[in-house]
Design a protein around this nucleic acid. Structure first.
Lengths: 196, 196
DNA sequence: TATAAAAACGATCATACGTTCGTTTCCTGA
DNA sequence: TCAGGAAACGAACGTATGATCGTTTTTATA
């Protein structure tokens, strides 16, 4: 046996990425074996290497694609929104929405940082920093206009991001709490926390 | 060669736990090998088994001891503190202090949950739930007395805990921000967020 | 002080891992 | 239509891993 009927490169790669995402999310990068991954996709282990360079590259690509997407989406979402309060509200709503939708990517993006090569990790951390700066900028502008009272921009931004990102570890879209209510609660927590 | 001079059970176990804590924190449980660990302690790999049952038990014991300690300490800290506002302040201060002091244990306690046996994980999750309940109780009492305005106790508690625990991933005691200032910032964020 | 338990060694086991490679079959574009 | 690249197979390699075991030396107890 050899090449199977109907096989195509991009499709298989997408399947590998999806299965990899799932396995890394549930078991962790180190705990996931390429044999498991191959089995989940329906391939022999060696065949994976027609689509990925190494196991490390699989992880990096997953995280990297996620970060690039995250940055593009937040900028699109904030475009044209005027005023620090409105921008902060938009940021919170976007952040929660995105983190609910892509909780696996987000979780891996922080939990598996340690599994990245130093060089790869640096790339990701730089992108993450850029995302954090989006929030810092909003807080800074609001503080300058005396709309916000923030004693330390960066610390506050990290605190808020930690709070907003925390939902990835427990929120269940099919659970008791609706997405709308979740956003309301967090928006209030954030706004009350920074408003002058 | 065989038993080395001056060796004693409890001492070696403590060294194993400390080295294990460090390795798991920096590299992750799966990525840490017992050979690395043994080398760090100054033992042959096989000798570890005079002190631990399995690698899994090493991880479990580390997390379990941490959780038991955390619960004992929070109860001691809250004992005798009266009034929801004061209790909330005390909780925030304690939580931050403890999480700064033992950031490695805390980090492992959540990041390596996935590496635990289902049964072991269940034990830890139960303990964690008990800790979360401490905060929930404070919020509930405060809400009943109309001191706090909280639309969903559990969601709010999780949001606050995520925020407070986030410092483990970035706070550096030797950095720009003092412990005092950190507590002040977070206390304000929490109080403003829940006060009626 | 004799003796059993404790704590270390060092060799070894079976297994699982990431990756490579030669080969075969299928798909696609000239 | 047919040639060449793409995508799969399956076997294999070298290494690393968690764990076991018989043995030896030290410590501690009675």
């Amino acid at each position: 046996m050899s090449r199977t009927r109907g096989s195509s490169g991009p499709k298989t790669l997408a399947a590998i990425n999806e299965a990899g995402l799932d396995l890394i999310y549930t078991a962790g990068y180190e705990a996931m074996s390429l044999r498991e991954l191959a089995a989940k996709v329906g391939l022999q282990p060696g065949s994976l290497y027609n689509h990925i360079e190494t196991k490390q590259d699989l992880l990096f690509d997953l995280i990297h694609n996620h970060m690039v997407m995250l940055l593009a989406r937040v900028d699109a979402e904030l475009e044209g929104v005027e005023g620090p309060v409105e921008r902060l509200k938009a940021f919170v709503a976007f952040h929660l929405d995105y983190h609910i939708e892509r909780k696996r990517e987000v979780f891996i993006g922080s939990a598996e940082l340690r599994s990245l090569t130093p060089k790869n990790r640096k790339t990701i951390v730089t992108l993450r920093r850029a995302y954090e700066d989006r929030l810092c900028d909003i807080l800074k502008t609001g503080a300058a206009k005396r709309l916000f009272a923030v004693s330390d921009i960066r610390v506050t931004a990290y605190a808020l991001l930690a709070m907003l990102t925390g939902i990835c570890t427990w929120y269940d879209p099919k659970g008791r709490v609706s997405r709308r209510k979740l956003i309301d609660i967090h928006t209030r927590l954030v706004l009350d926390g920074v408003t002058a």
